[in-house]
Amino acid sequence: MIKIENLVKAFGPKLAVNDVSFTVERGEVLGFLGPNGAGKSTTMRMVTGFIPPTSGKITVGGHDVAEEPLAAKRLIGYLPENAPGYADMTVHGFLNFMAELRGLKGGARKQAVNRVVELCFLENVLYQTIDTLSKGYKHRTCLAQSLIHDPGILVMDEPTDGLDPNQKHEVRNLIKHMGASKAIVFSTHILEEVEAACSRVIIIDRGRIVANGTPQELKARSPEGRLEDVFRAITLPDTVKEH
């Protein structure tokens, strides 16, 4: 569903993403791991068509993101980092607006909004404006927005950031459950999350892919069988060098 070939993004002289290639198929949940500033968000922003790549090619559901951006965007549900939302809108108004932009009309729109409200437990705050929501609710509102058109592809930038342990658990289960029928990419730096929800892991560091495999394969690289050790072994030398 998502195919990325030799993706490069330069901000001035700095290469934020440096020759990244991978594919994600339907039924796969890909965990995107890496230290802060490794290029996770930049890669996701390119996949969703928010920023253009410097070079390389991204195909989403058979559509080239650079050439047919609208066709590609229709297939994707996107949860950006920090879960933005229009502060002055109510949750209901916001979801309705997003559904409208997704081309949903009348009864279908109502149904779609009701479905995601239930899925993300938003009944209690439906008519509250977004700026009055707690972080957890704000996050779930944005998550609901990404699911509103029941997309075949989900791109989520730190979907569990700022949630309490129960909410984290729910979101993880939701991702796992949806992973059966969708292609999902999500970024995180919580390692347990990867083990709980992912069928495959990519570790990215300073713009490059440094590991790609199932959680089990990666764990096997460490003598104690812990993902954390592997992550540190791969990414730590660079972090130390930077300081």
């Binding site: 609208l70 996107y78 950006p80 920090n82 939302g85 997003m98 932009l101």
Partner: peptide, 14 residues
């Protein structure tokens, strides 16, 4: 400022 531009421009909207 809100970051909603990222939502708006990743919708199927030019």
């Amino acid at each position: 400022r809100l970051g909603t531009i990222e939502l708006l421009l990743t919708m199927p909207v030019t």
